[in-house]
Simulated assay, not measured.
Amino acid sequence: MLESYLYTIKIDNEYGYINNRGSFVIPPQYKSARDFSEGLAAVRTFDNKMGYINTRNEMVLELEAEYLGDFRCGLAIVIFAGKEGCIDKRGQFIVEPIYESIYDINPSGTVVVTLNQKQGLLDNSGETLLNPVYDTLGAFSNGLAPMRRAPGDKEGIINESGELIVEPRFNSIWPFSEGLAAASLDGENYGFINQWGEFVIEPKYYQVLPFSEGLAGFRLKTGGKWGYLNYLGEVAIKNKFQNVGQFHEGVAPVKDKDLAGYINTKGKYIIDKVFLTADEFKNGLGCVTYNYEWGYMDKQGRWIYKPDSFDLW
């Protein structure tokens, strides 16, 4: 998997792709480029042609679109003439571009859409599962999603059949992640609920992030620093960071004093905070910027692709 994955890189305002050894597989040549997903990557050329390339840099789909998204479950969100739809890998519309927005492609392949300012749910063939009657409908995870029936109503939880699982009583609920969803009763204090709508972590936090690899970022209004909670609501990593990301592959990007680095699940820096930005790890590497130049590192802090201006190690 790591051998075949390609990583997006930006050099002198041109985008290309490298492998996990830092060698160029597709030299920088694009005006914009997204990460590869399911074997394809959306790109824009300097003469403003848009489409999807494969790992051999062959344009397998060329589309006159305003936006091309990543593929997930065989579908990608696209925008044509201000309207959103979904295509398959042949470029055929599975969800016609008639929607004001498409919130997400869910892990099951279902799609949350907005039509006439109301949200509904389609299956992976574009057929309607839930009519667009909801004021808000969140992403589905394990068959459950937060929803609000009408403006001003409270939020509850439904399944993909539209059955009410948790009565609307929340000011807001986020999509589920690792079996828990961030939720607030008053819009100011957040905790985490289970699939039955019970708080398993009390709502006392000013801001939180979804759980990832057993940890969720949090911060209190007083002090304002970020840390991490575990599933029991215990502080697993002390709140001492300016900003934090989610854990992936055992590490998370954090920022302090406007400098970014990476920590492990014990809260210890494994890559020192010296970067302008640090993205979450993906397929064994983390993308960082130093003096606005892109680079990639592994979890041992070794450079796979080093910015020209970097001279600290």
Rank of each mutant, 00 (worst) to 15 (best):
Y15I: 03
N19R: 09
N20Q: 08
R21G: 00
G22M: 08
V25M: 11
P28Q: 01
R34E: 12
R34Y: 10
A42F: 07
F46Q: 04
E58N: 07
V60C: 10
E66Y: 09
E66S: 14
G69V: 15
F71W: 05
R72V: 04
K83N: 11
D88G: 09
I94W: 02
V95A: 09
E96A: 15
E96F: 12
E96W: 10
I98V: 15
E100Q: 15
D104A: 11
N106S: 11
T110D: 07
V113D: 01
L115Y: 10
K118L: 13
G120M: 08
G120N: 02
S125H: 14
G126E: 10
T128P: 01
P132A: 12
S141P: 00
P146Y: 00
M147F: 15
R148P: 00
R149D: 01
R149L: 12
G152I: 01
N159T: 01
N159K: 05
L164A: 00
I165V: 14
R169N: 12
N171H: 14
I173D: 04
P175M: 05
F176L: 06
F176V: 02
S177M: 08
S177C: 09
A181D: 01
A182E: 07
S184K: 05
D186C: 07
G187D: 03
Y190F: 15
N194G: 03
F199N: 02
E202C: 02
K204D: 11
K204C: 10
Y206A: 14
Q207A: 14
V208K: 03
V208W: 03
G214N: 10
K221C: 02
G223R: 10
G224V: 09
G224P: 06
K225V: 12
K225E: 12
V235F: 02
A236I: 04
K238G: 05
K238L: 09
K240H: 05
N243E: 13
Q246H: 09
F247K: 03
F247R: 03
F247E: 01
H248K: 14
V251Y: 06
D256P: 00
A260C: 15
Y262S: 03
I263G: 04
G267E: 06
K268W: 11
I271V: 13
D272F: 13
D272C: 06
V274F: 09
V274W: 05
V274S: 07
A278S: 14
E280R: 14
E280H: 13
C287D: 00
V288P: 07
Y290N: 03
E293S: 08
W294R: 13
W294E: 15
W294D: 14
G295F: 02
M297H: 01
K299P: 01
K299G: 02
D308M: 13
D308I: 11
D308A: 15
D311Y: 06
L312G: 00
